[in-house]
Amino acid sequence: MKRNKEIIFGLYGDEQDLLAAVKSAKDRNLEIYDVYSPFPVHGLDPLLGLRESRLHIAGFLYGLTGALIAFLGMSWVFTRDWPIIFGGKPYWSVPAFVPIVFEVTVLLSAIGMTITFFVVSGMGFGVSNETLHDSITDDKFCLAFDKAEADEATVRQVLQESNAEQVHEKMIKA
C-alpha cells in the first residue's frame, strides 16, 4: 500500500559512526527504514540483515539462454534450414560454433543482469527517486527511520547518542 512517509534521518561524516549507529538501533529493536551512503560501506549488509543478492542466479539463467539460442540457432541453420558444406567439413561442425556461443552467452548475461539490476532497484532512464539529502552522494552517511514504524523518541535518542552530525525530517510522497 502506498502512503506518504515521514522520514527522520541522521547524517554522519564517517562510516564507522554510521556502523555504530546502525548497531545501536538494532540493539534497541528499531525498524530501520534505509541506510544511504556515498559509496558501498563494507560490513553494513550483515548488520542490516540484508540477504545476499541473487543477481548472479539471474545472470546464469540469461547466459544459459544465450548459449542455447546461439548453439541451437546455428545448428538449425546449418543442418535444417540451409545446409552448406564449408571446406569439406561436416554440416554440424560443433567446434566452430564455440566462439559465437561464448560471445552470445556473455552478451545476454551482461545485458540481462544489468537490466535486472536497474529494474529491481527501481531505477531507469528518466526515473527520479526522491533523495533525503543532497550530501548523501557527496560525503555524508545517512541512517533513516520511518516514523510510522519506529518510535520517534527512541530514534532521536539513538541518533544523538551516536553523534549524528545533523538530524532532519523529510516527507516522502507516495
Binding site: D34, P38, L48, S53, H56, S121, M123, G124, N129, L132
Partner: peptide, 23 residues
Amino acid sequence: LGWTGAAKHWQRWEYLSLILAGL
C-alpha cells in the same frame, strides 16, 4: 537513473560490477 545510494542498491551494484568483471 534515480540513484539514491541505498544500502541494498550498493550491495547489488557491487555484485553486478563483480560479475560483469568476471564476464
